[in-house]
Simulated scan of single mutants.
Amino acid sequence: MSPFLGEVIGTMILIILGNGVVGGVVLNKSKAHNSGWIVITLGWGLAVAIAAYAVGGISGAHLNPALTIALAIIGQFSWSDVPMYIAAQLIGAFLGAVVVWLHYFPHWKATEDPAAKLGVFATDPAIPHRLSNLISEIIGTFILVLGILAIGANKFADGLNPLIVGFLIVSIGLSLGGTTGYAINPARDFGPRLAHFLLPIAGKGSSNWGYAWIPVIGPIIGGGLGALFYKVFFLT
């Protein structure tokens, strides 16, 4: 398998499991309905870990344009491969969202709230405030990239790194995710948001493109800052 296909499949797994747990919690008549934020954050952490286990040996399991760009900024990834990785991540995220739509097919009609349906696919702020929302995404992704780099510098038993990164995702979700839904990944938000826009989802509302730039720009800024911080303070 090529690194390109690895990133497609890995990101698809990430979205199937990550957006899937959101669907289980927010969509009506799901057996997991209203099971809460803890379930969502734990589901996302396990989604990241499983996706990383699946393709880590093939592509490095970036699964996130912000991480790919951050690694390139500090010289740990080739800039020439960045467009290929980002394209693969966006494709995988879109395909994963389509699978989630199919999985919950009868639940879209059973759910009246259009915002809940959009929330299965993409993030939105608890309190709309563009600057604060942007800062939240910057901080969350700063911690994500800094944490991933710091975890990678530690010695663990073979094969435990993806699981520890999964714990990092749970921690970010619990501590920082309540403001914006913690996209911390441009592909995770843009690919499924595009799927929401294109798919014939029963009773859907707006895809909220006016907000869509924040979970793209914020993570890219935060990831780059996190990588530079690690390079300056941990490696120098």
Rank of each mutant, 00 (worst) to 15 (best):
H129V: 05
L134I: 05
E137H: 02
I138C: 07
I139V: 15
I139N: 07
I139C: 04
F142N: 00
I143M: 03
L144F: 13
V145G: 00
L146S: 14
L146Q: 06
L146K: 01
L146R: 00
L146D: 02
G147V: 10
G147M: 12
I148L: 15
L149F: 05
A150P: 01
N154M: 13
K155S: 14
F156G: 11
F156M: 14
A157P: 01
N161P: 03
L163P: 09
L163G: 15
I164G: 08
I164K: 05
V165L: 15
G166A: 10
G166E: 03
F167A: 08
F167C: 13
F167K: 03
L168T: 02
I169A: 12
V170R: 04
S171K: 02
S171L: 15
G173E: 00
L174T: 03
S175V: 10
S175L: 15
L176P: 04
L176T: 07
G177Y: 06
G177K: 05
T179D: 13
G181Y: 00
G181C: 09
G181P: 11
A183M: 14
I184P: 02
I184R: 00
R188A: 13
D189E: 12
G191R: 12
P192C: 11
L194V: 14
A195T: 05
A195G: 13
P200K: 06
I201M: 04
I201E: 09
G205W: 02
W209I: 06
Y211Q: 08
A212M: 12
P215M: 07
V216G: 03
G218N: 14
